[in-house]
């Protein structure tokens, strides 16, 4: 079951997207649960009160609170990096701030079934990868966290530090071994750092800046490797 939100001030657009989503769900034999909001404020209130969404189709030009503001609120105030945002808009030019919210994709109205199918394929892939479990042992206890929550992993002597947006864990282990059981969202940038690509704010050839402002150096020997990986992804 995937829960999908649609937020647009045009009632008809919401209905048409909803129908296309049901069409897709039927074809792929999956369950989707859709929610519709007509204003940014009502959507914000829903999310603030703990409402959960996997995917959100968000109109950029809303009445008062714009899609840009809602997107920024989700990422910055709620610290929610997992929610996949697809912006919808009447025009194909996008403000700088939109890119800071790491959207999954952009769609220009009128939206076609093909486009919805394409976006859904991509979204489901991303969501699945995020939900894969990462397990480690701390003392006698086993811990499981979704891989999508991990921002980066760091090698600290004989320990490995796992950093998420909200907390950090340490356990005994080797980073090289850990690297093998991580999904393809992760990339080794240094012999003591593995990052989750979903949490990268921006890359340069030499460094990576993560969403929380952490700056990590890509080691000399890994720069070409990282660049080639980035060239080939998606």
């Amino acid at each position: 079951m995937y829960s999908i939100g649609i937020c647009d001030d045009g009632e008809n657009i919401c209905i048409s997207i909803e129908n296309m989503l049901f069409q897709y769900a039927q074809e792929k034999n999956i369950q989707v649960d859709t929610n519709v909001w007509y204003t940014g404020e009502s959507l914000r209130d829903y999310l603030a009160s703990g409402g959960y969404l996997d995917l959100l189709f968000l109109d950029i030009e809303l009445f008062k609170m714009t899609g840009i503001e809602v997107g920024a609120y989700i990422r910055n105030q709620l610290d929610n990096m997992g929610l996949q945002i697809v912006y919808i808009s009447g025009k194909a030019s996008y403000a700088q701030q939109l890119f800071k919210t790491q959207p999954l994709d952009f769609l220009v109205k009128p939206i076609l079934q093909e486009q919805i199918n394409e976006v859904m394929d991509l979204a489901l892939k991303v969501i699945k990868k995020r939900n894969e479990r990462f397990e480690f042992q701390q003392g006698k206890d086993y811990y499981y966290i979704p891989m999508g929550d991990i921002v980066y992993l760091e090698s600290k002597g004989r320990k490995v530090k796992v950093v998420t947006m909200k907390s950090a864990f340490e356990f005994y282990g080797k980073l090289k071994k850990v690297a093998k059981c991580l999904s393809e969202d992760f990339i080794v940038i240094h012999q003591s750092y593995i990052i989750n690509k979903e949490y990268v704010f921006r890359y340069t050839y030499e460094m990576v800046e993560l969403i929380d402002g952490t700056m990590l150096t890509i080691s000399l020997s890994n720069r070409k490797f990282v660049r080639d990986k980035l060239l080939r992804e998606e």
Binding site: Y203, T204, Y205, E206, M207, T217, L230, L231, R232
Partner: peptide, 14 residues
């Protein structure tokens, strides 16, 4: 043809 360019510059980048 597939290519990428790094558009950002970080000040303390080596």
């Amino acid at each position: 043809v597939n290519l990428i360019l790094y558009m950002a510059r970080m000040e303390n980048g080596m």
